[in-house]
Design a protein around this nucleic acid. Structure first.
Lengths: 383, 383
DNA sequence: TTGAAAGCGATACCAT
DNA sequence: ATGGTATCGCTTTCAA
């Protein structure tokens, strides 16, 4: 039925080891025999059994992307196709395969034994919602290649990739300041969720930078670069924004960002509720950054209902371009995440680990930088 | 390093064939030895090599889901996570794995040899945009198990699953009639695309049913069921809708659905353009069915701009709930597709084929029925 | 440059 | 009930 290496050997009148060498294009085989054997292979429509090859080579040529289908993680969910695409784009050309593992059916305990000891895969990629601390440590102990999507505090060494959420939040807030908003708030997301914490941290980074800008405004001959550098981890972009803010601040008078942060599970209902709370505050913010598209949508609804005009009375910016940001009224300024790049980065780091390109399995990580997409929701008229 | 069946055999003082039998829980082994061997396995942290098992058993325990990452198919794209979830939900418990194959890196020619002859997978699932006629025939010839998502005309036997697009379109149109709209049009989608053709066919089904209803309205003592049955493949649901339409039609006077269909690549720009064309027609439709969320969004924009009120002057319905339908202004009546069920159906049929539960590999198919979600965009005020 | 034989880690048949 | 051994299809020394 199926044609094997033996059939080829017989038909070509060579040893099967010779056929194997032809398969692997060994330099020790003469071009003549190579040609002959290849002709036979083509004629007989031969394809080596990947199973046998992998067993013999003791390599699976297979990486696992583990997900938890029972958990409906909105973010990964929506960009799953892109992440897969990214991973595939780097492992595919290297002749590796991608198998999807659902931890729901395997169970966290049997998981390691099945995938790792069972040699189903040569490496794993999973996000930090399923890669627990214990799991990571177990994998470390086994010296098994894996990449985490998102950091896992307390695990070292650890290879991970992530969207730079902190920087992203800072970009969003800086943009708001640059546009003339002076008192932004942050709504949605849950305390303890690393993604939320990172974004809030970035939000505060930008607030701090803006504070500095305000102080400079009161000093003649200030040197923004030096200040900014001293203020902490600010980059060129923020520095420029800060410089612009100085001018704004000078015209706009007292600067008083309270930096309100209102957490809450990131859905539409909470977007409405949190917006309502914000509007009832003694010092109402003049702009918001939303944890997700759904939160933003809820906020927009509440604003519309209360007759608050966007973007003039309230600027609205949000994380993620998909699925709604381009389609709301008005369209939302947002941070677009290149999830394909995220998958590709994970794939690259994993392949590096598998092929031992890393001198030591040292803890490395790679950020994927988000991109600011400016739309009408933050187009404040010049005052 | 890694512990194998031999290590267990030695440690337990039995033959490795015995260990193998224990692994497979063979009835011929005494409970005593089973217990003993299992204890050793546990102690040594043994897990059989899936590669070796699969080679020996000549079964891959693996199914492939093939996609074309270079092609950005909006629909599959958005529901990819759910489809995977559906497939996994049936193959996972059967201890099968899911590997994602990207045809982009493999190439359509080398594809069969790699996946099929290379015995990487025991079966394939792919949609009919990548499963060409020749490919299907080749697989048929090799007697290789596969499931197509979407029918492939001209291939028999063929196992396929699909969303019932024709019925869906009919449901949408019937809903419009039942709500009192009398002249719906269909916009977006490309001629030749099976999905488009199916939807247009369903649209026409409903038009035909409505026509009958109009005729009945002129006859005393009509029998809707008989008429409908005679008219073709109408089901209960449509029959009832037709009955209701009869009453509507009686009040509403002359019925004149022209059934305009305006094709065009399904994006936002075309949604606008096609809506504009529709509004310039001599007999302007009073409702539209859109091929996709993007088309619908474009149409909504144009309507807003031209000051046409929704839903009173124009009813708007669309295919797909995601990503926008719940979030537009007004929210869109739509057809929600259960893509998880689609994946599950594909998985079930494939497993049936692989395990030879099908007496003959006869051409079977399964429809996944869409669900109508009614929202404000079709809430015509009673006239 | 080619070939023979010993793995890789399981299964499966045939003895015992 | 258990053990020995061939086998799955390919790779990889080691000789020739």
């Amino acid at each position: 039925m199926k044609v094997t290496i033996n059939d080829i050997a017989k038909a070509a009148n060579v040893a099967k080891s010779t056929v194997s060498k032809v398969l692997n294009d060994a330099p020790s085989i003469s071009e003549a025999t190579k040609a002959k054997v290849r002709a036979v292979m083509r004629e007989m429509n031969y394809e080596p059994s990947s199973l046998a090859t992998r067993l013999a080579k003791q390599k699976g040529y297979n990486v696992g992307l583990v997900i938890d289908l029972s958990r409906k993680s909105d973010f990964l969910n929506a960009s799953f196709y892109d992440i897969i695409g990214g991973v595939e784009s780097v492992i595919g050309p290297l002749d590796y395969e991608l198998t999807i593992g659902n931890i729901e059916h395997v169970g966290r305990e049997r998981f390691v034994s099945r995938f790792v000891l069972g040699r189903k895969v040569d490496g794993l990629i999973m996000d930090n919602s399923i890669l627990t601390l214990e799991l990571a440590r177990e994998l470390n102990e086994l010296n098994f290649p894996y990449i985490s999507i998102g950091e896992i505090p307390g695990v070292a060494p650890l290879c991970w990739v992530d969207i730079n959420n902190r920087r992203g939040a800072a970009m969003l807030a800086s943009h708001l300041f640059a546009r003339g908003y002076r008192n932004p708030a942050f709504i949605g997301g849950e305390r303890g969720d690393p993604m939320f914490e990172a974004r809030v941290a970035g939000f505060r980074d930008a607030l701090a930078a803006a504070e500095s800008a305000r102080d400079w405004a009161n000093e003649p001959g200030f040197k923004p670069q030096e200040r900014a550098a001293a203020a902490g981890a600010l980059r060129e972009q923020e520095i420029k924004a800060a410089a612009r803010q100085k001018e704004k601040a000078a015209e706009a008078g007292p600067f008083m960002a309270s930096g309100t942060v209102l957490p809450g599970y990131a859905n539409e209902a909470n977007g409405r509720r949190l917006m309502r709370e914000l509007l009832a505050l003694p010092s109402v913010p003049d702009a918001i950054i939303c944890m997700s598209n759904l939160v933003a949508f809820g906020a927009l609804e509440e604003l519309r209902e209360q007759g608050v005009s966007i973007p003039d009375e309230m600027g609205v910016a949000t994380f993620d371009n998909r699925p709604l940001a381009p389609f709301t009224t008005p369209p939302l300024t947002c941070l677009d995440m290149d999830t394909f790049a995220l998958g590709a980065a994970a794939g690259e780091m994993l392949m590096a680990q598998i092929n031992g390109l890393e001198t030591a399995p040292s803890g490395r990580h790679r950020w994927v930088e988000p991109e600011l997409v400016v739309r009408r929701s933050t187009e404040k008229k010049a005052t």
